[in-house]
Design a protein around this nucleic acid. Sequence first.
DNA 1: GTCTATATGTGGATAGAC
DNA 2: GTCTATCCACATATAGAC
Lengths: 223, 223
Amino acid sequence: MYPNEAGPDAQDRLLDAAERLFAEHGFHGVSLRTITTEAGVNLAAANYYFRSKEVLFRAVFERRVGPVNADREALLQELMARSAGRPAVGEVLRAFLEPAFRASTSPGAEMFRKLSGRSSVDPSPEVRRIVYELYDPVSSRFVDAFKRACPDLSREDLFWRLASVFGAMMYVRADSGRLQRLLGDDLNMSDPEAAIAHLIPFLTAGMEVPPITTRDENEREST
Amino acid sequence: MYPNEAGPDAQDRLLDAAERLFAEHGFHGVSLRTITTEAGVNLAAANYYFRSKEVLFRAVFERRVGPVNADREALLQELMARSAGRPAVGEVLRAFLEPAFRASTSPGAEMFRKLSGRSSVDPSPEVRRIVYELYDPVSSRFVDAFKRACPDLSREDLFWRLASVFGAMMYVRADSGRLQRLLGDDLNMSDPEAAIAHLIPFLTAGMEVPPITTRDENEREST
DNA sequence: GTCTATATGTGGATAGAC
DNA sequence: GTCTATCCACATATAGAC
């Protein structure tokens, strides 16, 4: 092994191993010893390059979330310009979902999709803090876009519908294996294009059903 | 404290404390010490009543999943009889979702909904094993019902649509707090009736969109 | 059944040699 | 930068007194 010659260096090998093992066992389910062994580096190296296990976990996210956020921002900005600020909901969904599934086609990116999906409902406060911090700024801009795309929905309606949108996206990214058990192992969720092609029509239809609750007048914003 | 007089006994207090703490920190994120302290029992009692931490975790699930499964089975059976084996997809969704949200209105039941939702994509092999084992038998009967309700969908289409259904249900049950951060703290997911009222129309619309993939002829079953 | 005390293992993190 | 050796906190689980 010649770290500076062939293959990724120790830091990248640590990030790759951590990405996979956190995805498969969760933050608390895997030890630094296991991660460093898989990465082929000494235990002490993990604390040399990263200050702690939590920082390593955060670094795994930061490496992947940046590009996703940048793609989402670019697509949203282009969409808003093209639609004069009144986008179709299906287009907002597309700008939100495509970067989440397409971003990077490396093998590690697939592991990260699982990690991200699974972390999105991980109860551990450490995990939640990191996930929210990295995804929320861009997500809140999409919430605004959804409001503009669905001006007849009350905040409450929007809240429940976005729960379905987030839940569906997250469940597919998490790829828990449950539905393969129920429907057959030949099926799989790892194809980003298939995920996009199936999720967008389903979620668009859901977002477009007539309002359930009555819209409070004082919620209305000027357009 | 008089265990046999007022209030729940040590086993129930352990189950209640474990339910809450597992929901809030995950299986690996909380120790038996913390659980027994919260339950007001000695550490050794946990290993006396339950053989291990994993058995305690399983017992938490078994206490709640039994009634949900029974309700689901009853509703499904009644639906199939009423519809002569060709149910409307919205009715299948109702029979699947209502028990998951209504089952028991005790405060503990709300914590369990979070635990169950969060556990459904928990990466830990121990957690996955228990969740699948307890929910799968009834869930696979619902998969059959969905097939009958949507006979024009290919297995692949059904797979992706059920991912959205499972994902939405799970995300609402998990109640990660993410959407409250994005839309406002006055909103909440803890009202079972509101969850049902919003999820069913959304998911019905998604299930009813025209097929995306072409249906393979050799998938067709006699009706 | 309920406690104290403890066995036994593993975790994250670090000191300090090279 | 990279290693060995180790500190120390905390985990699960149990033995054994009462």
